[in-house]
Write a protein that binds this DNA or RNA. Structure first.
Lengths: 235, 235
DNA sequence: TAGTGGTCTAGACCACTAT
DNA sequence: TAGTGGTCTAGACCACTAA
């Protein structure tokens, strides 16, 4: 051990030691490492503790585990990172800036076919189309273009005069259980350019999300961030 | 339960049931849910099983847990998503395309001060500067601009004639234990535009990574993806 | 079929923190 | 200080899959 007596205890210590051996090539990429039971004996802990440590490493993509085949050091380290999907208001306030938003459009219309297809809704279905400009210290920060399925919403719902941003309102009233996300860089559309006050075609960072409440599609949203936006995380 | 007898067993069933109650507002955002021991009794399982389920939900950002304070439904659902940081070759091959790369530059030079500062190296330190163009079916896919700290590299290392791409070589030879990542959308620099065959200023999706082996900085890399690139994941 | 990881149990002690 | 989550243990059974 590097500094006896110091450092983490328990399963984190096991994880650290396994990582160290992998780093030093004592266990090379692609090689099988000893089974849990063996490591448990070596480290003098219960197998469950070793299991916890190796499970975390598998989650991070450092090792690959298969029953009977054992645990291997990942050959092609598809490292996994956890990113936090921000709530805009908190993100802005977290920078010490003043948050505001402005509803720029709201209508119950038939969306373009790709939108319906993506959500698995019947052609001709009507959806709320809500566009919002989010501001940080009065300057454009994020342009939100959202399609809302009326079906899972409370009867008589009208998004046109919200006290909260649509996203926060949704969170409080129509929890979802599942969704997918895609990140991309795209040229600002005419509308986005206008709202974000950037030239048309300028790079915007785009987060596209679909969310579902069980089997029912809830919303498809495109978030276009202005220049300088970065999404950070750790490996 | 929705469909008795069907569905997951064990801790996943507990997680699903807790999620269902949160969705149905039986447990509202911000509210404290019963302690582990109580849930264990209700579900007829050991506390460790409930713990596993709630720990997963906390990891996803659905609930927040604090000792003594108990487990609360997250008020501001900072949802967390796991993204896989791709290995370029596998990513390209996974699309059924043919992968190749081309070293476009390689020199041992003093990097600009921001690079040194970011890695915590002394002013005037020299680093390898390696640029690589990655191709999919012969077309530009990704332009890689990498700074490499010679210190942790094997003596006599020369990156100018690699059999593997630098990234894969690094993975096999200088494992790292830690790093951070940022995603952004940026206008293509002159060099990137030239290599990726896009107009200068066109949007490129940028992944910037720093990696460390223990306390020693290993590399700082900027990956600029051509048009149409999307990074996907699930919530 | 046998080896390995995945999970559960019942109980225990510890660490943190609201009160 | 007392309640709650965090973790560990020793043992057990199950599920998957390579040989």
């Amino acid at each position: 051990m590097t500094t006896p007596g110091a450092g983490p205890k328990g399963w984190e210590a096991i994880r650290a030691e396994v990582l160290r051996r992998i780093d030093r090539r004592e266990w090379a990429p692609g090689a099988v490492i000893p089974p849990e039971a063996e490591l448990a004996e070596e480290f003098g802990v219960a197998r469950a503790t070793v299991n916890r440590a190796l499970r975390e490493l598998a989650l991070q993509g450092v090792v690959e585990r298969r029953r009977k085949a054992g645990t291997r050091v990942a050959t092609h380290p598809v490292r996994r990172a956890v990113v936090e999907i921000p709530v805009t208001r908190l993100e802005v306030e977290g920078r010490g800036q003043c948050y505001a938003f402005h509803l720029t459009g709201c209508a119950l219309v038939v969306p373009p076919p790709p939108v319906l297809a993506r959500l698995g809704l019947a052609p001709g279905s009507r959806m709320w189309h809500v566009t919002t400009l989010h501001l940080a210290d009065g300057r454009p920060f994020l342009y939100e273009d959202r399609w809302l399925n009326p079906a899972p919403l409370p009867a008589g719902f009208d998004p046109s005069e919200p006290a909260l941003s649509i996203n926060e309102w949704l969170v409080k009233n129509v929890a979802y259980t599942y969704g997918d996300i895609a990140f991309s860089a795209e040229p600002a559309s005419e509308g986005e350019a206008l709202q974000l006050d950037v030239p048309k075609g300028a790079p915007v960072f785009v987060i596209e999300r679909t969310t579902w409440a069980g089997e029912v599609p809830v919303t498809l949203v495109r978030l276009a961030y202005g220049p300088g936006y970065r999404l950070r995380t750790v490996l």
